[in-house]
Design a protein around this nucleic acid. Sequence first.
DNA 1: ATTAATAATGAGGCATACTCATCGACTATA
DNA 2: TATAGTCGATGAGTATGCCTCATTATTAAT
Lengths: 223, 223
Amino acid sequence: MGDTQRQRLEAREEAILVAATSLFSESGVDGTRMAEIARQADVAEGTVYLYYKNKHELLEAVVDRFWRELTKGAKLAVTSNAPLGQQLTELASYHLKSLIDDFKIVEITSRARQRHGEPGRQLPQIREYVRVFDLIMQRGIASGELAASTPVWQMRDVFYGTLEHSARTLVLREQPFDSSVIDNLLSLFDGYRLEQTSVKKHPGSKQAALALLQQLESEISRW
Amino acid sequence: MGDTQRQRLEAREEAILVAATSLFSESGVDGTRMAEIARQADVAEGTVYLYYKNKHELLEAVVDRFWRELTKGAKLAVTSNAPLGQQLTELASYHLKSLIDDFKIVEITSRARQRHGEPGRQLPQIREYVRVFDLIMQRGIASGELAASTPVWQMRDVFYGTLEHSARTLVLREQPFDSSVIDNLLSLFDGYRLEQTSVKKHPGSKQAALALLQQLESEISRW
DNA sequence: ATTAATAATGAGGCATACTCATCGACTATA
DNA sequence: TATAGTCGATGAGTATGCCTCATTATTAAT
């Protein structure tokens, strides 16, 4: 049965990856010995090197897998056809929660990027993850919910970078997930939505005035 | 002359730090041997350990010094009594430029945070650096230029996090400093300035309606 | 059953962070 | 100036931990 054999190999590879993930998260990269990973995966030390060339490649595999799983979840948060605001909220919540939960691996990620002397490469799976954020921005532009005047990557940097840093802030303060971070970010993002209608952006435009009028009417209708 | 003696010691310590900084930036932490640091600092290998307990402490010292220098520059960018927008622009430019220039050390910083198993500690000097950002936000609130409804740390996370991530984006794409990143961020920050008058924030409030009306009037007056 | 091919093992090799017994240089006191 | 005492510097040696590779075990093929 070649099939069973292949499965056994994959199971071993998986066991090693799981052991490494657990130990790296627990004790950090430098605090984890290859011998310990092997022991926990129930293989001999030399066996680890049949599946991963060295410690650094194993680290990369751990990190890559983490972001691949994350990408799955992120795509789910975005696949609905709900309005942009809601999708952004879901994605942001998912992102922030995940970063907080697995902060250890997030930290380790930067370590995986640094291969010896070279300038920090971008790991392919992280690129893929970030692409999800770009996608939702592009969709927002396509549907007219976001202004096209700001480059997608800049909007994404605001969104992604803010959440990443907020996660760090919360974890270092030992605070739990805080939804107000997301509320705040989303209300800021209104700056991108209303841009075409913003007084600041096109101070002299007729459209801006009309948009304001519209807002005012909807406001009055509440009274 | 005890004074000369002390100066010699400090000079040695400095030489080691400089050598380590240069080599870590060049070849990364793992790619740098302690023997090489000693050689470049013109001391014996054992001497390094008289000044720094181990490689990790030396790394911490390198990183700490970098952020201390950065803090000096940041404080300068903020010390003027120019209007908030201009100070934010200056701080943002300085920050973004520095992160791009010394991206290698910025990357290494996360490495310094991870001491073996412990959860990532915050290095004191980085905390000090971030404080500069908090300070300018607080001053903005005090002067009424920023709304007080958003916690300072959240505004700071947007500002700081966005720039940090934009720096990464630019460096990985091998692009130079891009001032449009800062323009974009600052125009977004208008959301914090105008917050009290935003329809989104207080959807049912009379103030919001009045603010809109005011905007509309000023808009009409241009025609 | 025999052979071939592939996977697993772990003792040993090797690089390197770190130690420590020794040495040297400088200072203080007579 | 001689001497003792203190403290910094040295680098050969040690310990640790990543990784290799000759050997063994297991599976597949005929």
